[in-house]
């Protein structure tokens, strides 16, 4: 289904725009429909709202409508997006690594690859921290204790099978401990996990760096390492690789088109995301929220999503969750 507007957009994406006078002005999308398979306030919702704000502020779209269908790390929303949004132009779903893991852990028959990956946008690296009073000074101290007796090193994080648990599983495997032996204490979200750390109830904690940053600055928590690919400006901690554990992990987020959209619509969406990620408004929004920009499009993004699916499935199997 190609209407005139999306044809014009598709043409623009293919570089035909300069040949058609006036298209540059006419190409703003009237209404972008964003499907957010999570409740208002969370990471995907913030990404959805940020996309909406940046696109509107830069006049790339006229209006946007965000639909929230929360539940089970996206496992409730995905079937709706696959069925009810099928073939609809100007529609995207915001999702990411958490959905990949949640579908596997819930033994859902659905996969994120049933949608069409449009663009990878952001990632948040994870941080591993210990209470200020902890005897662990470096990641190596922590790893040694884990190796000696994993049951003595309870680690707090978000729900089981999520990004935080996956990272602990990876660390355990890397130091030669069976991931399922690692002592993981799941809390309902970053707040309660943080409380357990500040109250010195657990040995260490894993979560997105942003959850811990202020406590680290205030000296209440010690940052052992981050799971980014390289050192980050303003963060005084090594990457896991630098600290001797060969792991890189981003809680990535991106956008997906519903199955059945035309090539023209898809290209128009990819083009819209390319334009958006090039704006300074987008860069500012990402910086404000501590999001690392991980920008990939179309086929490259699909390859990335597929490889993440394989990697996460393997570690969840090791953890005994998939």
């Amino acid at each position: 289904m190609i209407d005139r507007r999306s044809f014009a957009l598709g043409a623009a994406a293919l570089g035909v725009a300069p040949l058609i006078p006036g298209v540059a002005q006419a190409q703003a999308i009237d209404m972008l429909k964003i499907f957010c398979p999570a409740a208002p306030g969370g990471g995907w919702d913030q990404t959805s709202r940020t996309i909406e704000q940046v696109l509107r502020a830069t006049n790339l779209i006229k209006a946007a409508q965000v639909t929230n269908v929360p539940g089970a790390g996206g496992a409730v929303g995905l079937p709706q997006f696959l069925n009810n949004w099928k073939g609809q132009p100007n529609s995207i779903m915001v999702a990411g690594m958490v959905m990949v893991g949640s579908l596997l852990a819930n033994k859902s028959p659905l996969r994120i690859s049933q949608t069409i990956p449009v663009a990878g946008l952001t990632g948040e690296f994870e941080a591993i921290v210990v209470p200020a009073e902890s005897r662990f000074k470096t990641l190596k101290d922590f790893a040694d204790a884990l190796k000696a007796d994993p049951s003595k090193v309870p680690v707090a994080g978000g729900s089981a099978g999520g990004t935080d648990h996956i990272l602990l599983g990876m660390i355990a495997k890397e130091v030669g401990v069976a991931p399922s032996k690692a002592s993981y204490v799941a809390f309902a979200g970053g707040g309660p996990a943080l409380a357990a750390l500040l109250g010195n109830q657990v040995a260490a904690g894993i979560s997105g760096y942003g959850e811990f940053s202020e406590q680290v600055k205030a000296g209440k928590l010690r940052l052992l390492a981050i799971s980014a690919d390289k050192r980050q400006a303003g963060i005084d901690a090594p990457t896991m690789k630098e600290a001797g554990i060969n792991i890189e992990l981003f809680n990535w987020r991106g956008v997906f088109a519903p199955p059945g959209v035309s090539a023209g619509d898809l290209n128009a969406m990819i083009d819209l995301m390319k334009k958006m990620t090039a704006t300074k408004e987008w860069a500012e929004a990402c910086a404000q929220r501590d999001w690392t920009q991980i920008t990939t499009f179309g086929d490259d993004y699909k390859k990335f999503v597929d490889s993440e699916n394989t990697r996460i499935e393997a570690i969840l199997k090791d953890l005994g969750l998939a």
Binding site: A72, A105, K107, H165, A186, L321
Partner: peptide, 14 residues
């Protein structure tokens, strides 16, 4: 929460 596994859901995603 502790294991990520579904309980008493009878296969209903909702």
């Amino acid at each position: 929460l502790q294991t990520g596994q579904a309980r008493f859901t009878f296969g209903l995603t909702e």
